[in-house]
């Protein structure tokens, strides 16, 4: 590992200048990509993922469909240049399969699959850059992409990672912090405040766990506001576009009629 960097200095600042509970910059881009039904490029600091949704559509493999609900299929692809060291991961790599399985089971109860029997929803995740918080970026991006695709869900799923530095809880860890600290990812459904995903992989005392767990739940609510704003922006843009396009084709004549009426 590189030289020892102070994770939390005496002034209460972290290595990238954030405060303990400060989240990284989040940027959301939901513009159209290729022929996808919905897509979202989401950046948490330097971590960047692109999620595209296809569906609900007819499944490629008919045998895998279910008669009473839609099947969710998740494929994750980590780009070889997304980390500092170039590493090619096969698609059957266990870590990637696990990530895909986690995303799949997180969204299965949230997406209203029962509305689309015998069909399939494909979620393709491209990891463009990694700097910690991969799972939470994937979950947030998938939520937004599903919303953009117009797939009905019961609620948002907002995920945040958290960790502890000695006794101080931190939120939204970078790669550097993740390597050194026990950390976990929590996904909440903001409307009910319930938790759909908890993933802790490093040793942590039970009392500390409770502390970060609660904190991450609150941070999820904050993140929800940001995500909701992005969805609203997109929708208002779409509505504007619809209005202008509805006016234009019938352009000249109707406008004149309107003016005539106004003159009366």
């Amino acid at each position: 590992m590189s030289s020892r960097v102070e994770i939390l200095n005496d002034g209460g600042y972290r290595s990238d200048g954030r405060r303990q509970y400060e989240l990284r910059d989040i940027s959301i881009d939901t513009s159209q990509q290729g022929s996808a039904d919905g897509c979202c490029t989401l950046r948490h600091g330097l971590t960047e993922v692109l999620v595209t949704i296809f569906g609900p559509r007819e499944a490629k493999m008919r045998s895998q469909t279910l008669h009473d609900r839609a099947v969710i299929n998740v494929e994750v692809n980590v780009l070889p240049f997304s980390t500092g060291e170039r590493r090619r991961r096969a698609r059957a790599d266990r870590r990637i399969l696990e990530l895909a399985a986690t995303i799949k089971s997180t969204f299965e109860p949230v997406v209203q699959t029962a509305l689309y029997p015998r069909s399939q929803v494909d979620i393709y995740v491209q990891v463009l850059q990694q700097d910690g918080g991969l799972l939470h970026a994937c979950v947030n991006a998938t939520t937004l992409a599903l919303i953009c695709a117009g797939i009905p869900m019961t609620d948002f799923v907002c995920a945040v990672s958290g960790g502890v530095h000695s006794t101080e809880p931190l939120l939204d860890l970078t790669m550097l912090e993740e390597n050194d600290l026990p950390h976990m990812t929590v996904a909440v459904m903001p409307r009910t405040g319930k938790v759909t995903l908890v993933a802790l992989e490093t040793r942590l005392h039970v009392d500390r766990f409770a502390e970060i767990f609660k904190l991450a739940g609150e941070a999820g609510q904050a993140l929800h506001k940001e995500m909701k704003r992005a969805v609203r922006n997109r929708t208002s843009r779409l509505v504007d576009a619809m209005e202008t396009s509805m006016k234009q084709p019938v352009g000249g004549e109707r406008d004149v009629v309107m003016e005539d009426r106004m003159d009366f």
Binding site: Q32, G34, L79, F81, R86, A241
Partner: peptide
């Protein structure tokens, strides 16, 4: 791509209004 030694993103035929569509390639050297 800041982590690569050289990189480029290329889009051919993006529709200027909606900002979508087109052939999109991401290339990076390491």
């Amino acid at each position: 791509a800041p982590l690569a030694n050289g990189s480029a993103r290329l889009n051919m035929g993006k529709s200027p209004q909606e900002g979508g569509g087109g052939t999109e390639i991401l290339a990076a050297t390491k």
